[in-house]
Design a protein around this nucleic acid. Sequence first.
DNA 1: CAACCTCATTCATAGCATTGAATATTATTT
DNA 2: AAATAATATTCAATGCTATGAATGAGGTTG
Lengths: 120, 120
Amino acid sequence: MNEVDLYPYQKEVRFYKVLMHPLRLAILDLLRDGEQCVCHMEAVFGLRQAYISQQLMVLRSAGLVEVRREGLNIYYRVIQPEIYTVIDAMRRMTQTEPVLPAKPLLPCHCPTCEVTQVQL
Amino acid sequence: MNEVDLYPYQKEVRFYKVLMHPLRLAILDLLRDGEQCVCHMEAVFGLRQAYISQQLMVLRSAGLVEVRREGLNIYYRVIQPEIYTVIDAMRRMTQTEPVLPAKPLLPCHCPTCEVTQVQL
DNA sequence: CAACCTCATTCATAGCATTGAATATTATTT
DNA sequence: AAATAATATTCAATGCTATGAATGAGGTTG
């Protein structure tokens, strides 16, 4: 049977699969302002570290984020910012807004959170 | 445990899940030029009708397409064209092009295909 | 109304994603 | 080098998605 080759779509499909998860979208939103350590995400979302790491791994193996180590902390940053053009287009379509907690839900001791706490 | 409410992301997530499938992307590409009947899709893609119908159902229950009956044929059309802004943003990011067969892979007798055949 | 189109639905199976729990790894500090 | 802190990985159970096969439902034509 002579059928169309849908293989060329796989590249896009892979990215849609990555975006198909609420926590991964939330992480990408958090990284809009620049790199953050895992510890900070843990505090902001109030979710277990292992779970966050699992989703970060998905983002990493998709080539969307990269990692930088500084002492004990590991900082993630987006290396393919074009992903935000996709996310923003979807937001316009669904008329939704990113929902991030204004303050971290849990106390944290990473540099980012220390600064946040001083500001309070 | 005090954790973030990721529920607001579900609306977007639902659409990403819809886009996460090569045939559904191909169908949306085919519908860029306006409505098409199932029969035509069958011919263009060379895939079994039931399979195409299944994916059309997913597009329909996501509210992306609607249906119009004309005699024996059923025509699908996109009712939320903003979806193309998302798809196009993704295409720019992945630097891919939509791949549709220039001519239907199979003969078809729907109005659209008759016209195509006359043009040959 | 019976045969025939076109399309939709149901069902079953296999595969993949999600997510919690436990544990491993890497770097730092003492 | 042992203890600790931050992050990663593995495992297992469960649920969701994909897809083929079979069948059903609506219209149409003779």
